[in-house]
Design a binder for these strands. Sequence first.
DNA 1: ATCCAGTCCG
DNA 2: CGGACTGGAT
Length: 287
Amino acid sequence: MAGADLLSGEIVFSPDDPDAAGHFNRMLREFYRQNRRPMPWRVNLSPYRVLVSEMMLQQTQVSRVTQKFPGFIAVFPDFQTLGVASLEDILRSWQGLGYNRRAKYLQAIARTVTDKWNGELPDDPAVLETLPGIGKATAGSIVTFTWNYPLVFIETNVRRVFLYHFFPGKDPVPDREIYPVIERMLDRSNPREWYYAVMDYGAFLSGRVSNPNRRSSHYAVQSPFGGSDRQVRGGIIRMLLSHGPMPREDLVRRCGTDETRSGDILSRMINEGILKDNSSIISFVEV
DNA sequence: ATCCAGTCCG
DNA sequence: CGGACTGGAT
């Protein structure tokens, strides 16, 4: 079934229909056969590569991660290398992905894996969730994609597909109602490929139908980027990466916003452990 | 304007 | 629970 055929009319599946799983998965398989998206982290599967890709993919488009992932892996090929790298070097390779805290988390995770777990990433999602920057969705993704275990997790593409086909018109829908439906539909013979397919289909749906995720209980509109604290933070990171350590005064003045505000933002970044202040010289944290 | 393989903090 | 966190493509 070509992608366009899927949109000729909204196909509604009833979660209670005993044949729903068969029908849904037949449709999904046919879509996937013709529309699968090749991605660097779907080949050469290793716990490290999957972890890095999943951290990068949080709130970040596939197209952007596709551009950054190979270079990052080339510079930091394994847990060991990433663990001993400086945050500055990691952020340099991270630039353009945004949400810099994730890079900090990733470094902390690499250190835990090498220092405490003998270089092995656990295959237990509950253990993974104790790591910084890893919640339910990322833990489920990592374990399913690395080890092909049949876990149930929800991220934006999965949510979109299930809202579209199983909860048409219902508003709002909490994830708690979606989990059992996924549980019933999940192809336990190959969960990895099944999630690949659902996610590719969800991405395909994006933009072609009015976003079903707006009917999720967990949907929130985000504030505009222009003029936001996030934009100022991005500027600070960029400035420090190009100039090296800078006096606090200079940095705050060159943020392009009033100095009280930029000072507050800077303090927050220091609190988060991204930057440090040594007698009013601002730089990235070390070791 | 909208939204992207979410998580954390208060 | 609400809000913060990135930056770019469309």
